[in-house]
């Protein structure tokens, strides 16, 4: 038999016969930001405050600066959104990004062409994703154990790869393409910003409009139900970690472009900022809920706060405190919303 979904089923008990086409109940369109109303409000208030107190805030230069300087975080966070929705977490994300940056740096400095070096970098990200995913879904090792392990391994490999020293690529001919990609603008709009938008759109498409994306939600919500409904759970999980690996490769490329160098040191706060952004954006750490739209808001929220602190000449040492507070408050508000404190309860009586 085929998985045909069109076959009609016998007349229902006590239900009106289904009239094909018409008569669908009026339906509330679900916004992808539906669960993120709080973060949108917070972002608007924050921007309003900064616009009034810091004249420079609303300038195009400052706005693009916020987006560009948070691109690495955004790319990693998009990968992390897939993983967290699927019910896992990828602790190796930041280390993977750094390792991929080193692959690009070494590739360029050893005389490879730009395209070859970039493909090699993406291949490295893919490989990291396959290793993480295969260990987790086929060998059934806990995602915490696997990604904690690869976090440490990748961090160390990045250091070993060039004896712990930074590779400067600024002078290299092959680097110029990457450099212009992260620096240039088309009609005032940075190419990198356009690239970010394209990646976000692709991620939204995959997550919401493909069977794969739906399977990710199903697995995060109830892996056993997903399996019994014919979803290939192991393969889907592998795909999720591959996406995270590719996101790390993109982040590594952008990092090299913006620094004009490949640094082997993993930014110790990067991973936590990425996960915080995903959670602030309304993706549930318990899996099955969330979206890329929310993650974009989460990244922007943290980015704008960071920008505001800089503009207000507050010491950057405070950054972690503010990020931590925002994370706790945002997730607490999200929990409160779900438990119905701020919303009319649904009619669940029985």
């Amino acid at each position: 038999m085929s998985n045909s979904v069109t076959r009609e089923v016998p007349a229902p008990p006590g239900a009106t016969p289904a009239s094909a086409g018409g008569g669908a109940a009026p339906r509330r369109r679900r916004l992808s930001l539906g669960g993120s109303a709080g973060i949108v409000a917070g972002l608007v208030i924050l921007c309003g405050y900064l616009a009034i107190t810091q004249p420079i805030f609303l300038t195009w230069g400052n706005i693009t600066n916020i987006v560009l300087s948070n691109s690495v975080i955004l790319l990693l966070a998009i990968g992390a959104t897939f993983v967290i929705i699927a019910g896992g977490i990828d602790l190796s994300a930041a280390s993977a990004g750094t390792a991929c940056a080193m692959v690009l740096g070494l590739g360029l400095s050893s005389g490879l062409g730009a395209v070859t070096a970039l493909l090699l970098t993406l291949l490295a990200g893919l490989l990291i994703g396959v290793v993480n995913g295969a260990l987790i879904s086929y060998l059934r090792i806990s995602f915490l154990v696997v990604t904690l392990g690869t976090l440490s391994i990748l961090e160390s490999i990045a250091l070993v790869s060039n004896q712990g020293t930074t590779i400067s690529v600024f002078e290299l001919e092959a680097f110029q393409g990457v450099y212009h990609f992260t620096l240039d603008r088309i009609g005032g709009v940075p190419i990198l910003m356009i690239f970010d938008v394209v990646v976000v759109a692709a991620a939204v498409l995959i997550l919401r409009y493909t069977p794969f994306g739906r399977s990710v939600f199903a697995i995060g919500s109830n892996p056993e139900a997903a399996r019994l409904n014919g979803i290939n759970v192991a393969l889907t999980m592998l795909g999720v970690y591959v996406i995270a690996g590719l996101a790390a490769a993109l982040a590594g490329i952008v990092q090299v472009g913006r620094l004009t160098a490949a640094s082997p040191a993993v930014d110790s706060t990067l991973l936590l900022t990425v996960i915080a952004a995903v959670l602030i954006g309304g993706t549930a750490y318990t899996g099955g809920e969330g979206g890329v739209g929310g993650t974009v808001l989460g990244v922007l929220f943290l980015g704008v706060i960071q920008n505001g602190l800089t503009l207000s000449e507050v010491s950057t040492f405070w950054r972690g405190t503010v990020n931590g507070l925002v994370l706790i408050v945002a997730v607490a508000l999200g929990v409160a919303r779900h438990s119905g404190l701020f919303r009319r309860r649904k009619g669940k009586v029985s």
Partner: peptide
């Protein structure tokens, strides 16, 4: 969730 295979065309839902 039971219909994903049958509801997709060219990889899109």
């Amino acid at each position: 969730v039971s219909w994903l295979g049958g509801l997709s065309r060219f990889g899109l839902l």
